[in-house]
Structure formats: structure tokens, C-alpha cells
Design a protein around this nucleic acid. Sequence first.
DNA 1: CTAATATGCAACCATTTGATTGCATGTCAA
DNA 2: TTGACATGCAATCAAATGGTTGCATATTAG
Lengths: 103, 103
Amino acid sequence: MDAVFRALADPTRRQLLDSLHARNGQTLNALCAEMDMTRQAVTKHLAILEEANLVTTIRKGREKEHYLNPVPINEIADRWIGKFERGRLTALSDLKKRLERED
Amino acid sequence: MDAVFRALADPTRRQLLDSLHARNGQTLNALCAEMDMTRQAVTKHLAILEEANLVTTIRKGREKEHYLNPVPINEIADRWIGKFERGRLTALSDLKKRLERED
DNA sequence: CTAATATGCAACCATTTGATTGCATGTCAA
DNA sequence: TTGACATGCAATCAAATGGTTGCATATTAG
């Protein structure tokens, strides 16, 4: 869980997920083409995404294909965000009341 | 958006949101009581949460009350996570096919 | 076989981050 | 008013982070 949150914290990594979402199975080089940094930097970001289980890779000869795994994102949505979502309206009206009581 | 993701990346800050979710409107001192670090460290985390608009504060005399704002979390759920959620089954079956083709 | 291509590994560096300590300010209560 | 209490501000520091360069390895194409 923590690994997923930290992986999502970086804009470059979210961009990589976006890229894979648009075209799944891209090789490292393909992904690098869209990023404005060295291949090694991209490799590191992909390693973090893989560590968080957000990306799965398959070695194809000398190439490495990258696949998006949306499951961890879903788990966060279900188990973590859902909690706050449920309390949304309540919390908002609470806050409004408090603010009004200020005046 | 980026500020929200980065704010959520730290476990201490998620714990603070949890704490406010359990009991909204806590003062700085109350929040500190549950955290295993100095008050100043907690202050910094709260500042980051406030920066990301996840927490709103109201000064009450010499105390400061903290309120959870779930809106940014909801926006992420709607505008960002939703995208990946929609492609979930497709992406999974894609991945499965690829993996099977490997054997 | 050999050269080009795709990726891996490691050392290194600057910046950011998370936390601390010390002191200042502001407010309430006796 | 004075002392206790709640919070604010700033300097400092170690560790993590994001990026680079240089070289190594492995695979494919000619």
C-alpha cells in the first residue's frame, strides 16, 4: 500500500502509467522516447512502479515489454479512498457549520 | 493534483488524515499526542496537507482546530483513478493473453 | 563473426525531505 | 499581571530521492 502511494507521488511515474494506459506493452526504449530524461532515470522510475506492482514486465529477447497493472490502484480506491468518500458530505457540512459558527 | 499525490505519499500524513477522519476538528496538540514525533514535525506534515487542501484549519484563541477536506481525494478518485479503473478488466485480460502466448 | 541495438549495473552528485533543537510569540487562567 | 500553555519560526542535519555518466552484458541483424 505504502509502495503504491509513494510510486504515484512522482509526476514522471504517473506519466509512465498514462503512457502505458494509452499503449500497453511498450519497451523501455519506447517509453524513454516520450520522457525528457536519460534511459537510466526512466529505468529507475519503472523499477519503483514494478516494486509497487503497478507495472509488470516481460523479457522478449533483448527487449523488455512493460504492462500496466491497475489492480493496486483499484485497491487504493476501494479500501482507502472509499472511506473518505463515504464521509464526504458529512464532513463538508460539519466544516460549513463550524465556519459559520465563527462569524 | 500533484500536491495531493505528494501529500498522500507519506504514511505519517495518511495517519493524520485517518485521525481527523475518526475525530474531526482536533487541535495540533491533540494530533501530536497520537504521533511518535515532535510537535514541530507534525506541524510540517499538517502544513503540507493544508497546502494540498486536504486539511483546513481554524484558529480558536490559542488553539488551532484541524478539519479534514475530502474533496481533493474525491477529485483524484474521479478524474484520475477512474481512468485506470475503466480499463481494468481489459488490461488484465490483455496481460493474461500475452503471458499465455509466452509459453 | 561482428557491429549495432537494448538493457543492466554502479558510482556519484545535487536537491528535497523528514525530523530535530532552540527560541519567540500569543493567549488564557489564577 | 504573571505563569503556564499552544502554537510559530528558523537553523540545522541525516537520509532519501531523482538525476547523471560510464561501462558491462546480452541479443539480433548483416
